Computed example of a mutant assay.
Amino acid sequence: MKNIFFCPDESNFYSNCLENLVLRNCQKSECVVEFGSGDGSPVINSLLRNKFDGVIHGFELNTSAWKAANLTIDEYNLGHKYIIHNSCLFESSQPEAEYLVANPPYLPAPDKEIYMPLLFGGIDGATVTNELLSLGYDNVLLLVSSYSNPESTIAHAKSNGYRVTNFIVLPLKFGYYSSEPKVKNHIEELRKNKMAFYSGDYYFLAGVLFQKSQESRVDLSNQLAQVMTSL
């Protein structure tokens, strides 16, 4: 469906990041909050492959995606592990949780008039990502794009007390949404100002675990910045 985000490569990558950076680290019945669940497939696929026994509360504004997600959740009897609310996380009573996870909207554009307005990430693509890092969760897993002002996100995370404790990077080809002329031209302008980094038709997408815990002195922020700006 055209009104539901569809990019198998990106969804599979998000699912792998969830498994390797979040679910496998959960030792008890943790609560996880997800911003922008879409059709739910990344989380559903992760839950089917892991023994996670906590609860994931998803928030999804797109009613079509929310309905599609719930059909699949019911099909696999995952209703006790994955509950998706048809509302905006920022405007809702936020559940207490050990983790916040998201593949947030990160398309940069001059305005929301793009193929799928819910994918609009602000003028530089980092607006929603940075807002999520302002909510105060101790552990935050986000997908960060190299063409969406990644250095601003790393700096914003640091200013909010986060360290980058782990990350996974995937080279991706510009897809249907990012290749829209209005979006692609805007990304080209951002590159001139060193706010977007890509090479030819490829950019980097990173699954990044930001943590506030003082237990670990590991901080991979500089390494992440070097990778994301290397294209």
Rank of each mutant, 00 (worst) to 15 (best):
V55L: 01
V55D: 07
I56Y: 04
H57E: 11
H57R: 13
L61C: 06
A65F: 01
K67C: 03
A68M: 07
A68F: 10
A69G: 02
N70V: 02
N70T: 04
N70H: 05
T72Q: 11
T72E: 12
I73V: 13
E75H: 10
E75M: 11
Y76Q: 06
N77C: 03
L78V: 01
H85K: 05
N86E: 09
C88T: 06
E91A: 04
E91V: 00
E91H: 13
Q94S: 01
A97W: 11
E98F: 04
Y99K: 07
Y99T: 02
Y99I: 09
L100P: 07
P104F: 06
P105N: 09
L107Q: 13
P108Y: 13
D111G: 08
D111I: 07
K112I: 05
K112Q: 08
E113C: 06
E113N: 15
Y115M: 15
M116H: 12
P117N: 03
F120H: 12
G122T: 15
I123H: 12
I123Y: 15
A126K: 09
A126W: 11
T127N: 08
V128S: 03
V128G: 02
V128Q: 07
N130S: 11
E131T: 06
E131G: 08
L133D: 14
L133Q: 11
S134N: 11
S134V: 00
S134T: 05
G136T: 03
N139L: 06
V140Y: 10
L142W: 04
L143D: 13
S146A: 14
S148E: 10
N149F: 08
P150T: 15
I154P: 02
I154F: 12
A155G: 05
A157R: 07
A157K: 08
A157E: 06
S159A: 15
S159D: 11
R163F: 09
V164A: 01
N166M: 00
L170Y: 05
P171V: 06
L172N: 13
L172F: 14
G175C: 13
